[in-house]
Amino acid sequence: MRLIHLFFYCILLLSCQTAAWAQEGAPIQRNFPVPVTLSVFSQAISLPNFKGFFTDPQLGIRLGTELNYRKKQHSQVFQTINLAYYSHKSLHRGFYLSSEVGYRKHFGSFFLDATIGGGYLHLISTVPVYKATANGDFVKASAHFHKFMPTLGVGTGYRITNATSLFARYEVFGEMPIQQSVPILPHKALHVGMRIHLPTKN
Protein backbone atom coordinates (compact mmCIF):
# COMPACT_ATOMS: atom_id res chain seq x y z
CA MET A 1 0.00 0.00 0.00
CA ARG A 2 2.92 2.36 0.64
CA LEU A 3 3.84 2.05 -3.03
CA ILE A 4 0.33 3.08 -4.07
CA HIS A 5 0.41 6.10 -1.77
CA LEU A 6 3.80 7.07 -3.10
CA PHE A 7 2.61 6.67 -6.66
CA PHE A 8 -0.48 8.81 -6.16
CA TYR A 9 1.61 11.42 -4.41
CA CYS A 10 3.91 11.53 -7.44
CA ILE A 11 0.96 11.65 -9.85
CA LEU A 12 -0.49 14.58 -7.92
CA LEU A 13 2.84 16.36 -7.89
CA LEU A 14 3.41 15.85 -11.60
CA SER A 15 -0.16 16.88 -12.43
CA CYS A 16 0.24 20.15 -10.53
CA GLN A 17 3.55 20.83 -12.17
CA THR A 18 2.42 20.14 -15.74
CA ALA A 19 -0.80 22.09 -15.14
CA ALA A 20 1.34 25.00 -14.04
CA TRP A 21 3.47 24.74 -17.21
CA ALA A 22 0.32 24.63 -19.30
CA GLN A 23 -0.99 27.76 -17.61
CA GLU A 24 2.23 29.53 -18.42
CA GLY A 25 1.22 29.03 -22.03
CA ALA A 26 4.22 27.03 -23.16
CA PRO A 27 3.52 24.91 -26.29
CA ILE A 28 4.61 21.81 -24.46
CA GLN A 29 3.85 19.11 -27.02
CA ARG A 30 5.70 21.03 -29.70
CA ASN A 31 8.75 21.39 -27.44
CA PHE A 32 8.80 17.75 -26.50
CA PRO A 33 6.41 15.72 -28.56
CA VAL A 34 7.33 12.34 -27.08
CA PRO A 35 5.27 11.72 -23.94
CA VAL A 36 6.26 9.84 -20.83
CA THR A 37 3.80 7.40 -19.31
CA LEU A 38 3.97 6.25 -15.75
CA SER A 39 1.56 3.78 -14.21
CA VAL A 40 1.19 1.55 -11.21
CA PHE A 41 -0.55 -1.74 -11.75
CA SER A 42 -2.02 -4.65 -9.89
CA GLN A 43 -1.35 -7.96 -11.64
CA ALA A 44 -2.32 -11.55 -11.10
CA ILE A 45 -1.85 -14.94 -12.75
CA SER A 46 -5.32 -15.60 -14.06
CA LEU A 47 -7.55 -16.00 -17.03
CA PRO A 48 -8.78 -12.59 -18.21
CA ASN A 49 -11.38 -11.21 -15.80
CA PHE A 50 -11.80 -8.23 -13.52
CA LYS A 51 -11.73 -10.05 -10.18
CA GLY A 52 -9.24 -9.72 -7.35
CA PHE A 53 -7.20 -6.68 -8.36
CA PHE A 54 -7.69 -4.94 -5.03
CA THR A 55 -7.43 -7.81 -2.54
CA ASP A 56 -3.84 -8.05 -1.36
CA PRO A 57 -2.64 -6.67 -4.71
CA GLN A 58 0.58 -7.81 -6.38
CA LEU A 59 1.89 -4.46 -7.51
CA GLY A 60 4.05 -3.22 -10.30
CA ILE A 61 5.21 0.01 -11.80
CA ARG A 62 5.69 0.85 -15.46
CA LEU A 63 7.53 3.66 -17.18
CA GLY A 64 7.14 4.17 -20.90
CA THR A 65 6.84 6.40 -23.87
CA GLU A 66 4.79 6.59 -27.04
CA LEU A 67 5.71 7.20 -30.66
CA ASN A 68 3.02 8.62 -32.91
CA TYR A 69 2.78 7.13 -36.39
CA ARG A 70 -0.42 8.77 -37.57
CA LYS A 71 -2.26 11.44 -35.74
CA LYS A 72 -5.58 12.80 -36.90
CA GLN A 73 -7.91 15.18 -35.14
CA HIS A 74 -9.83 12.42 -33.33
CA SER A 75 -7.61 9.37 -33.58
CA GLN A 76 -4.02 8.23 -33.57
CA VAL A 77 -1.92 5.17 -34.26
CA PHE A 78 0.97 4.85 -31.86
CA GLN A 79 3.65 2.55 -30.55
CA THR A 80 4.53 2.19 -26.89
CA ILE A 81 7.86 1.28 -25.38
CA ASN A 82 7.65 0.21 -21.75
CA LEU A 83 9.94 -0.79 -18.94
CA ALA A 84 8.20 -2.34 -15.96
CA TYR A 85 8.72 -4.12 -12.71
CA TYR A 86 6.25 -6.13 -10.66
CA SER A 87 6.37 -8.31 -7.60
CA HIS A 88 4.51 -11.59 -7.43
CA LYS A 89 5.04 -12.66 -3.83
CA SER A 90 4.68 -16.42 -4.05
CA LEU A 91 6.46 -16.91 -7.35
CA HIS A 92 8.73 -14.26 -8.79
CA ARG A 93 9.66 -10.69 -9.41
CA GLY A 94 9.33 -9.67 -13.02
CA PHE A 95 10.97 -7.07 -15.20
CA TYR A 96 9.80 -6.49 -18.70
CA LEU A 97 10.68 -4.46 -21.72
CA SER A 98 7.76 -4.41 -24.08
CA SER A 99 6.44 -2.62 -27.09
CA GLU A 100 2.91 -2.40 -28.39
CA VAL A 101 1.18 -0.88 -31.34
CA GLY A 102 -2.12 0.78 -30.58
CA TYR A 103 -5.04 2.74 -31.89
CA ARG A 104 -6.56 5.57 -29.86
CA LYS A 105 -9.87 7.31 -30.45
CA HIS A 106 -10.56 10.69 -28.86
CA PHE A 107 -13.99 11.89 -27.75
CA GLY A 108 -13.37 15.45 -26.58
CA SER A 109 -11.13 15.14 -23.56
CA PHE A 110 -11.82 11.42 -23.21
CA PHE A 111 -10.10 8.68 -25.16
CA LEU A 112 -10.27 4.93 -25.66
CA ASP A 113 -7.44 2.81 -26.99
CA ALA A 114 -6.42 -0.76 -27.72
CA THR A 115 -2.93 -2.23 -28.00
CA ILE A 116 -1.23 -5.44 -29.05
CA GLY A 117 2.43 -6.25 -28.64
CA GLY A 118 5.10 -8.29 -27.00
CA GLY A 119 8.28 -8.09 -25.06
CA TYR A 120 11.02 -9.66 -23.03
CA LEU A 121 10.10 -10.76 -19.52
CA HIS A 122 12.86 -11.37 -17.01
CA LEU A 123 11.79 -13.31 -13.96
CA ILE A 124 13.60 -13.68 -10.65
CA SER A 125 12.17 -16.55 -8.65
CA THR A 126 11.16 -15.80 -5.06
CA VAL A 127 11.44 -19.50 -4.22
CA PRO A 128 14.74 -21.40 -4.33
CA VAL A 129 15.69 -22.93 -7.68
CA TYR A 130 17.79 -26.05 -8.33
CA LYS A 131 19.12 -27.88 -11.35
CA ALA A 132 20.28 -31.41 -12.00
CA THR A 133 23.92 -32.29 -12.43
CA ALA A 134 25.20 -34.98 -14.79
CA ASN A 135 25.18 -37.60 -12.03
CA GLY A 136 21.55 -36.96 -11.05
CA ASP A 137 22.22 -34.77 -8.04
CA PHE A 138 20.70 -31.33 -7.70
CA VAL A 139 22.48 -28.08 -6.94
CA LYS A 140 21.39 -24.49 -6.46
CA ALA A 141 20.68 -22.79 -9.77
CA SER A 142 20.24 -19.27 -10.97
CA ALA A 143 16.87 -17.83 -9.98
CA HIS A 144 16.63 -15.94 -13.29
CA PHE A 145 14.30 -16.98 -16.10
CA HIS A 146 13.92 -15.46 -19.56
CA LYS A 147 10.49 -15.41 -21.17
CA PHE A 148 8.66 -13.95 -24.10
CA MET A 149 5.55 -12.00 -23.16
CA PRO A 150 2.73 -11.37 -25.61
CA THR A 151 0.42 -8.53 -24.54
CA LEU A 152 -3.07 -7.28 -25.29
CA GLY A 153 -4.61 -4.23 -23.71
CA VAL A 154 -7.50 -1.81 -23.72
CA GLY A 155 -7.53 1.53 -22.00
CA THR A 156 -9.42 4.68 -21.37
CA GLY A 157 -8.39 8.08 -20.14
CA TYR A 158 -9.02 11.75 -19.72
CA ARG A 159 -6.90 14.65 -20.93
CA ILE A 160 -6.59 17.10 -18.03
CA THR A 161 -4.51 19.61 -19.90
CA ASN A 162 -2.84 19.72 -23.26
CA ALA A 163 0.17 18.05 -21.66
CA THR A 164 -1.32 15.72 -19.07
CA SER A 165 -3.69 12.76 -19.25
CA LEU A 166 -4.80 10.28 -16.66
CA PHE A 167 -5.56 6.77 -17.84
CA ALA A 168 -6.63 3.30 -16.76
CA ARG A 169 -5.61 0.22 -18.72
CA TYR A 170 -6.64 -3.41 -18.58
CA GLU A 171 -3.94 -5.64 -19.93
CA VAL A 172 -3.39 -9.34 -20.37
CA PHE A 173 0.09 -10.69 -20.86
CA GLY A 174 1.64 -14.11 -20.83
CA GLU A 175 4.77 -16.01 -19.92
CA MET A 176 6.07 -18.20 -22.73
CA PRO A 177 7.26 -20.88 -22.94
CA ILE A 178 6.05 -22.74 -19.85
CA GLN A 179 5.59 -26.47 -20.30
CA GLN A 180 4.86 -28.61 -23.33
CA SER A 181 1.29 -29.15 -22.19
CA VAL A 182 0.80 -25.52 -21.13
CA PRO A 183 1.45 -23.04 -23.94
CA ILE A 184 1.23 -19.88 -21.86
CA LEU A 185 0.91 -18.74 -18.27
CA PRO A 186 -1.59 -15.87 -18.43
CA HIS A 187 -1.44 -12.71 -16.33
CA LYS A 188 -3.90 -9.87 -16.10
CA ALA A 189 -3.04 -6.34 -15.02
CA LEU A 190 -4.98 -3.22 -14.19
CA HIS A 191 -3.00 0.00 -14.61
CA VAL A 192 -3.73 3.51 -13.47
CA GLY A 193 -1.33 6.17 -14.53
CA MET A 194 -0.60 9.38 -16.29
CA ARG A 195 0.87 10.52 -19.54
CA ILE A 196 2.78 13.77 -19.58
CA HIS A 197 4.68 15.76 -22.15
CA LEU A 198 7.83 16.91 -20.43
CA PRO A 199 8.96 20.40 -21.41
CA THR A 200 12.42 20.98 -22.84
CA LYS A 201 14.55 24.02 -22.26
CA ASN A 202 14.44 26.54 -25.12
Binding site: L6, C10, Q17, L38, L63, Y85, S87, I124
Partner: peptide, 26 residues
Amino acid sequence: MKTIENVLFLLLLVFSLVACQPEEPV
Protein backbone atom coordinates in the same frame (compact mmCIF):
# COMPACT_ATOMS: atom_id res chain seq x y z
CA MET B 1 14.11 18.86 -12.11
CA LYS B 2 11.75 17.84 -9.32
CA THR B 3 9.86 15.66 -11.79
CA ILE B 4 13.01 13.83 -12.79
CA GLU B 5 14.00 13.46 -9.14
CA ASN B 6 10.64 11.91 -8.36
CA VAL B 7 10.93 9.44 -11.23
CA LEU B 8 14.46 8.53 -10.18
CA PHE B 9 13.29 8.02 -6.61
CA LEU B 10 10.61 5.63 -7.80
CA LEU B 11 13.13 3.73 -9.91
CA LEU B 12 15.48 3.50 -6.92
CA LEU B 13 12.62 2.10 -4.85
CA VAL B 14 11.93 -0.49 -7.53
CA PHE B 15 15.56 -1.59 -7.74
CA SER B 16 15.79 -1.87 -3.96
CA LEU B 17 12.81 -4.24 -4.05
CA VAL B 18 14.48 -6.30 -6.75
CA ALA B 19 17.59 -6.74 -4.69
CA CYS B 20 15.70 -8.91 -2.17
CA GLN B 21 16.82 -12.54 -2.09
CA PRO B 22 14.57 -15.62 -2.49
CA GLU B 23 13.16 -17.19 0.66
CA GLU B 24 15.35 -19.87 2.21
CA PRO B 25 13.84 -23.20 3.28
CA VAL B 26 13.98 -24.07 6.97
